[in-house]
Structures are given as C-alpha cells and as structure tokens.
Design a protein around this nucleic acid. Structure first.
Lengths: 230, 230
DNA sequence: TTGACAATATTGTAGGACAATATTTTATAA
DNA sequence: TTATAAAATATTGTCCTACAATATTGTCAA
C-alpha cells in the first residue's frame, strides 16, 4: 500500500505554492492529515524542501477553499466540520446540485456534452459491490463533478469545489457501511438515467432525494465524528 | 469628496494580511483600482508601509475570493468579468438567493431575527431618489446580505460572499440610470414585504424576478463593459 | 516599420533575523 | 500531592536582503 504521494518532485521553476497546495489537499483527502490536526510550517518546509514563503502561500490557498483554518499565532489546522456546518453545507449544495441536474438534463441533446458525461459516469453501471470505502468516495466525487461539468456553467463548477464535500466525506468515511454505499450507488443510477433522458424535473427530484437521504444519514451519525459546536 | 480610505493605520501587531486585504477590497469596490488594473507589489509595500510578505498574503486571499487574478510571473490583476462569467454567476446566485429568501421568510416568526432584519433593511422604505450610484450599490449590497443573514445558514453567507456581486456592480455601475435604480428599489420593497409576511413562495418568486430583470439589464449593456471572451 | 537583442522591471523563492504570542515545562506554594 | 505561577521553549508573523527566472520595455539595425 505504498501511496506514492510524496511525488511532488516536479519543482518546475516559479509557482511552488500550487504544488504544495495540491500536495496538502491530497494528503488531507486521503487521511494522512486528519481533521483537527495542526500543520507546522517548519515540518513542511523540511518535508518538502521549500522555504516558509511558499508553504504559507499554500496555507492561504487552502484556507480560502475552506479545507484548513488559520488561527492567529497558531497557524494552520485541518478543518473539522460541526454537524451544523455539515448540514448547512448540504442545504446549500442541494440547490447547486439541483440547478446542475436541471441544466445537465437540458444539455444532453448536445452530442459532445452527452458523450463526455456518459464517459465520465460509465463506472456507475458496474453492479458489483465496491472494493473499498475510498474507492466509493472517489467515484462519488467523480459522479457529482460530472453533473456539474455537464451543466456547462463554469462558475458553478468553481463554487461547488468550495463546498467541502471532500471534508465531509473524510469525516464520515469511517461510518460508511456497504448497504449505505449500495443505496447511494442505486440513487446515482436513477439520477443519471433521468439526466440522460433529458428529463430535468425528474433529475432534480432524484438528486434532491439523494442529498436529502445523505443528510439524514449524517444526522444519524455519532456525535464524535463532528467538531463540538461552539 | 475626500474618500478617507487610506485609513488603514491600525497596524496592530500580528495579522497585517487581513488588513491589507480589506484595504484592497475596499479600493477595488470603490473604483480606485479598476478592473484590469495591475497591482504592483513594490507600489503597495511603499504605499502601505509593509513588506512584500503581507502584501503577497493579501493577494492570495483576494485571489481565492475571486476579486483579483494571479498570473505567474506577472502578479496580481484586478479581475474583470466577461459577460458569460457575469451571467453564469447570476444563474448560481439566483438559486442561493432563492434559498435565502425562502428561509428568511420562514424565520420571520423569530422576533430577534425579524427585528434585526427590519433594522438592516430599514432604509429601503425611504422613497426619495438616491443621491449617488455608489450609495445605491452599498444599499443594494446591504439588502441582499440582510436576507442572507436572516436565512440563518452560516455557510450560505460565506459562499455568497464569493459570488463577486461587488465586481459585477463595479463594472456596471457607470451604466446605471436613475430609472433602473428606482425600479430595483421598488423590487426590493416587494421582496421585503413578502419576507416580512412570512410568505416563502412569494418571496422566492419576487427575488427570482428581481435577479432575472437584473440579468436582462446586464445583457443589454455595451460590450466594452466586460472583458473580451477568450 | 519590423525584428532581434539588450536593459530594466517584477515576481518567485531562499534564508536569516527578531518580536509577539502560544505552549510546555519547571519550580514553588498550598 | 496538587494547584498555581514563572520560566523555557516552540511557533507564528513580519521584515530584510539577495538572487534567479520571467516579463516588459527600450534600442538599434535591416
């Protein structure tokens, strides 16, 4: 299980900040840096062999994305969502995804958009149970982002990336059971079929149901998964 | 008309980045830095009497907010939206504002929320014509942000701040006519009344109409207001 | 005027330094 | 022993200088 993550090794001149941000993003996503963990500048400068400047820049970037928090004189901490925050994000995300589903369904008459969408979601038709939780998480992200892309609204894509789906998934991943995953995958199928049928109303309803069920699941989770409400 | 903006003068120890970011934000909003203008690190270090570090940090912050763009080896440029980008942002914003209007209407039964909302929008009941375009822009921002606040979803507020309403307004401000402003203010009244009546459906319809009209107005504007589509 | 080249300007990064603040450890008193 | 206070240490926020990489501007010849 040698996760070849340390391969940043592409120090093309100029612009190390984004590379470091990518590295940290991936590390947070795959759990190497857990929610709540503190990120020490000095450790990262030696680990990545860069100076403090680029590291701090990467911090700013990730903080703006909401992936980490910057506490004055305490530096960067991997963000940990409270239940309230997670539910609020879900509420907002529901509207954005509903919009995306509607628009995607409307765009399925364009052959290019349709072909790309079909290609990007192809794997959801695989009926076999998923091997790992992380595999499902990655597939889930790809599915939702395929809908965003098919919607054809560039700003929507950018804003959706700020919705911290990755953080939520990282926090709840340990509680995912195979039946929950299976149910979610089935719902993906329903959504995809509605979009491919160019049925905007059905697509919107399906994705709202999907997110509503996901929110219910989250509410049922043990409290210690989330940050304590202040 | 001495806009006393250069008053940053609160160099409390630690955390200059935010202060500089605030300064630049305000300067962009009020037009001192125009869309497309380049921001030179050296100029700002001498103007604000700080070193390059904090200035660069402020740049990262604003870039993440979408207010400026960072071009490798060319630094920071005040972002200029294309018509497509502006319309896409409007489409997304419409969904977020619709959600906010619904939730706000539902929250009007809570006396505290209601009182605060009434206080924050009080000035829209003033029937006299507005003195200046910038006054209307500020009032418009306050109105929309009051709805966001009353919705009671913290994440929604944060995401709405990334919607670049300020950039759009800065770009179209020169084309605003007094009748357009008057019409917009009348629509604000309709929205506010629906919310205060706790009528979620009416509030949502009213705000969708409002934004739809604003989008139409934008489409009718001269092309040179926007960045050329790539 | 145009193109190639040199000069200049600007950014990206490194590394050292130091004050301000947080955190941890140690010493002291109850 | 436990709790509190003080000292020691760690970490961040900022400044400074320096230099390479890249971009922009200016100059000169064809």
């Amino acid at each position: 299980m040698t996760t070849t993550l340390a391969v940043i090794t592409a120090p093309r001149p100029g612009q190390k900040g984004p590379g470091i941000a990518d590295y940290l993003r991936a590390a947070i996503r795959n759990g190497r840096f857990a929610p709540g963990q503190r990120l020490i500048e000095a450790d990262l400068t030696s680990e990545l062999d860069v100076s403090r400047g680029p590291v701090r820049e990467a911090f700013r970037r990730l903080a703006a994305e909401g992936l980490i928090e910057l506490v004055p004189n305490r530096g960067a901490v991997v963000r940990r969502l409270s239940m309230t925050e997670a539910l609020e994000l879900f509420e907002v995300r529901t509207e954005l995804e509903a919009l995306a589903a509607r628009r995607s369904a409307g765009n399925m008459k364009d052959p290019h958009t349709r072909a790309r969408f079909e290609r990007e979601i192809a794997q959801i038709w695989d009926d076999r149970p998923r091997l790992s939780t992380s595999g499902y998480i990655a597939e889930n992200r790809r599915f939702h982002s395929a809908i965003m892309t098919a919607a054809g609204n560039g700003q929507l894509i950018k804003i959706d990336e700020l919705m911290q789906l990755s953080l939520i998934m990282a926090q709840i991943s340990s509680s995912l059971t195979s039946d929950v995953v299976a149910a979610s995958l089935a719902e993906h199928g329903t959504i995809a079929r509605a979009i491919l049928d160019s049925d905007a109303d059905r697509a919107e309803t399906a994705i709202r149901d999907h997110l509503s069920r996901a929110a219910d699941f989250m509410k049922s989770m043990p409290e210690n998964v989330f940050r304590h409400e202040r």
